[in-house]
Amino acid sequence: MTGVEHGLPAIAAMFAAARAAQRAAFLPYYPIGYPSYTESLDAIIALAELGADGFEIGVPFSDPLADGPVIQAATQTALANGITVRRCLDAVRELRLRGVMQPMLLMSYLNPLLAYGPAAFVRDAKAAGADGVIIPDLPVEEAAEWAAACRSHNFAQVLFVAPTSDAARIAAVAAQATGFIYLVSVTGVTGARTGLSADLAGFVARVRSRAGGIPLVLGFGISTAAHVRQIEQLTDGFIVGSALIKAAQGGVAGVRAFVTELRAP
């Protein structure tokens, strides 16, 4: 991906490459500062070497209300380690210096980003080498200020659709989201689940028909190779978070073992 500009072009190139290889892009979620700042960077570098196509980089917030127990706990650890928005931008810069080429989208709840300032955040994140932002408590109706900031930096603004979103909302999200649309696989919070929703194919098709060609990435609950096989043909990408963080309790070796298992053909 050398030579491609960070932001929307890099994300488009990521999906194009995955599509050419006839697979969905693998986007691990990893929080900066878990279990420590250094180890989180090591884990992300290991994931980059293990074939991650891009990253959702977690920025910790004290009250992560869309997250289940695993990410809540990781977030608390990260905060105890002194991780701030600014420190996460340092992490992106350091990861680029250490050779991570894949797109990195920063995931944060709104309040820490508001404290930083939307325009300043997008400018500084882009300069650090990030490609987009994912804000789970920012629905499309409230996203205008962010859309403007992201547009001026060619930076992706990922928005969500959920199984509860109706046709009109899907269309509104599709009209505003850039980079990709994040499909929440289930009504619920993040966390590994034994089975994915029975109506997943119907849900993805419902969004696809109104998405106007913007890539669709599925997240929430994806934790096994069987899940990946089930969704690989449906979506353009998928996010794995809680199950990966659990595996990371076993250090970089744990991350390697988990991803190898997850990506087994």
Binding site: F160, T164, D166
Partner: peptide, 20 residues
């Protein structure tokens, strides 16, 4: 209509809850 009292209010929750 958007739930604002001047500069305050609104809706900042995950998409799943907006229809509810």
């Amino acid at each position: 209509e958007r739930g604002y009292f001047g500069a305050y209010g609104g809706r900042f929750v995950p998409e799943t809850l907006i229809p509810a």
